[in-house]
Design a protein around this nucleic acid. Structure first.
Lengths: 207, 207
DNA sequence: ATTTAAAAACAGGCTGATTTGTTTTTATGA
DNA sequence: TCATAAAAACAAATCAGCCTGTTTTTAAAT
């Protein structure tokens, strides 16, 4: 179709930024932070080097913007799963498996792991990302508090218990880089559920 | 002292390799994998580029050798702590805190995290490291089995429980990169102990 | 409504610095 | 004397950021 619709400047900018951010996350997933270059991102996004630096003047600006969007997307996805469970559309087991599945097979966890580890060796990057992680944690803790209750007054609180669960998922996902053992995952998830069940339950009665 | 003792060739080689491996781990800790270069390692080790490539012809060879030694050191350190607890020289709480302390403040976990994450984006590196992680896991599981017993026949096995604990530590340490919150660590460790206590205890009666 | 000027978006190449691996030369140990 | 370890220089490739020029969109003037 040769008819070309004129786009506004804002539409052009938004589209270019979207392409760059998506290409950034995809490249982090595919080849890791150490092998992610600004030229490689521009190529994958199908935009020029000039357009790339016009919108994101430095590699760090690009990485931080991609991280911000990724964190927002993860929190939104987790909130959607939690809302489904609160409403009864999803049971506890399915919720639990879906979160682990998202960590292992989604494109959030590993790309954010790449960035977090890169930030460990880069003070400036770490400083720029620290507020983003605080914001994400606040959103996660709001989700836990809305979605789970303690099974008894002296049980571990949902906030602590679900953060512990998320740490187990993180630890398993790191280990999965070099050793992908579905049997090991299975038994770890089973053990985690057993341990959690002594302390928290969903706010609905679906457990 | 200007007197210099003549060293054997083997002593010279061993010393150069030791310097290179130590410098590799130190640089990974200090600046991360993405900022670790072979020239930087040689400089920190105080050896020339030629000596470096004589012993380790590629960056990957250097990284793999450093990983192998690091994994061996970690397993040995953990085994020493476990032996102390089995012998009664260390109680359970102290053992537990010492392991977490080693993960957070020692130079094993973060340098291995840097390497594991780098391996995620590098198929060849991943293939070379996979056997090393299998070996490490076997050593860890031998330590768990020798050091802990289940509190009852239907409790979670020590192998699974302690691997879960290690995953919690890994997850916490990843999160600590951007958010170092001692209060959060404290409550996570307390919660973990409570959960573990329902399933495992030390093979000695010191708990 | 049309034209023109200004601003923004974009394209592609360039530069200095850095990287890893290779080659040649030198020093040391056997 | 020979072999090995080490030093130093070199080559080619890659990197991020910057630059100049072009195209598209917007705003102002007529």
């Amino acid at each position: 179709m040769t008819v070309s619709t004129r786009r506004t400047q804002d539409q052009r900018s938004t589209e270019t930024r979207r392409l760059l951010l998506a290409a950034t996350v995809q490249m982090l997933m595919d080849v890791g932070y150490a092998n992610t270059s600004t030229a490689g991102i521009a190529k994958r996004a199908g935009v020029s080097r000039g357009a790339q630096t016009h919108h994101y003047p430095s590699k760090m600006a690009l990485i931080v913007a991609a991280t911000e969007e990724m964190f927002a997307n993860f929190a939104a996805g987790l909130e959607a799963l939690a809302a489904d469970m609160r409403s009864g559309a999803l049971d506890y087991d399915t919720f639990f498996e879906a979160v682990w599945d998202e960590v292992l097979k989604g494109d959030w966890f590993y790309s954010s792991l790449e960035i977090i580890v890169a930030a460990r060796g880069d003070t400036e990057l770490r400083e720029q990302l620290a507020p983003l992680i605080l914001d994400l944690h606040e959103r996660l803790e709001a989700i836990w508090s809305q979605t789970f209750v303690a099974v008894s007054p002296d049980a571990i609180t949902p906030r602590v218990a679900l953060n512990l669960a998320l740490n187990v998922f993180r630890g398993m996902a790191v280990q999965a880089v070099l050793r992908r053992d579905e049997g090991y995952f299975r038994e770890m998830l089973m053990a985690l559920k057993v341990m959690l069940a002594s302390h928290v339950k969903p706010a609905t009665g679906t457990a």
